[in-house]
């Protein structure tokens, strides 16, 4: 019994020591950050290894630097990006928040569907090109446009873009993005433009707004019942409880009715 007690104490010491060492090392080293399924890791020569929403690895190489070995041509993206094709309006909105909306050279929604003035104006002057619907992109036009990168929303665009040697980043995830991932996703986009400071300012501003709204609604007695989803011809797709949309409803003092649905967006 005495042996057992002695052993337990020494074991506890080892565990505490190991944890201490781990915590000590956690602050240094990898230069790694992740937001949901997206990640950014500093590697040699100012390059960054990033993981997109599909789990693909890409490497961001500052212009004038050589890319590290072991990556295919379509995995290498020269930064800062000057010309981009963007599929999702929400991504364009974040690029506007970073102050790089003028890098958008191609989109897959028509002019009438846009509310961002810079894109509307760009489409009128021909600076921003409409490439057709997402499911039927005009790849010949895309090749002529020759963008540095395509921010796409699913993998179906990858085979053709690979053939055209145009790097592609998937900005959606299989599992719904929670509020933190939605907010910090701007840091992922910022790494393609070297606008990390702008991203931090944006996150601070949004966090402050959310906090102030949450404070105001903390004491509400009547909680409106809310659902969030898209209605299609044959089905309705709803946002799960782990999504940013559901979290926003809860923070705003609402009751989210699909609180038993978890998983994909």
């Amino acid at each position: 019994m005495k042996k057992l007690r002695l052993f337990s104490i020494s074991m506890l010491k080892w565990i505490l020591l190991s944890l201490f060492i781990l915590i000590l090392f956690s602050g240094c080293g990898p230069g790694f950050q992740h937001f949901g399924e997206f990640s950014i890791q500093d590697i040699e020569n100012g390059c960054k290894k990033v993981t997109d929403g599909l789990g693909r690895t890409l490497v961001l190489v500052p212009k004038g630097q050589n890319a590290p070995d072991g990556y295919e041509k379509n995995q290498i993206i020269k930064i800062p990006v000057k010309k981009a094709v963007v599929n999702l309006n929400a991504d364009v909105a974040l690029l506007k928040a970073l102050g790089v909306v003028d890098s958008v050279a191609g989109v897959t929604q028509e002019k009438e569907d846009w509310t961002i003035p810079e894109i509307k104006a760009g489409m009128e002057t021909g600076k921003v090109v409409y490439l057709g619907e997402y499911s039927s992109i005009d790849f010949e036009r895309l090749k002529v446009l020759d963008p540095d990168i395509v921010f796409a929303w699913d993998e179906s665009a990858i085979p053709m873009l690979t053939e055209l040697d145009i790097p592609c980043v998937i900005t959606t995830t299989k599992i719904a993005k929670d509020l933190k991932t939605r907010m910090y996703f701007i840091k992922f986009l910022a790494s393609f433009y070297g606008k990390e400071k702008e991203a931090d300012l944006f996150i601070a501003r949004v966090s402050k707004t959310i906090e102030s709204v949450a404070k105001k609604t903390a004491g509400v007695k009547i909680k409106p019942k809310v659902i969030w989803g898209d209605i299609y011809e044959k089905r309705v797709l709803v946002e799960p409880i782990n999504s940013g949309a559901a979290e926003m409803i809860l923070l705003a003092g609402g009751e989210y009715l699909f609180d038993d649905v978890k998983g994909a967006a």
Binding site: L19, I23, F32, Q33, H34, S39
Partner: peptide, 16 residues
């Protein structure tokens, strides 16, 4: 090296 160390407050049990 990456997720494990970056989120040590969540992953320490895995190291243990």
């Amino acid at each position: 090296r990456t997720y494990g160390l970056e989120s040590i407050t969540v992953t320490w049990w895995f190291f243990v």
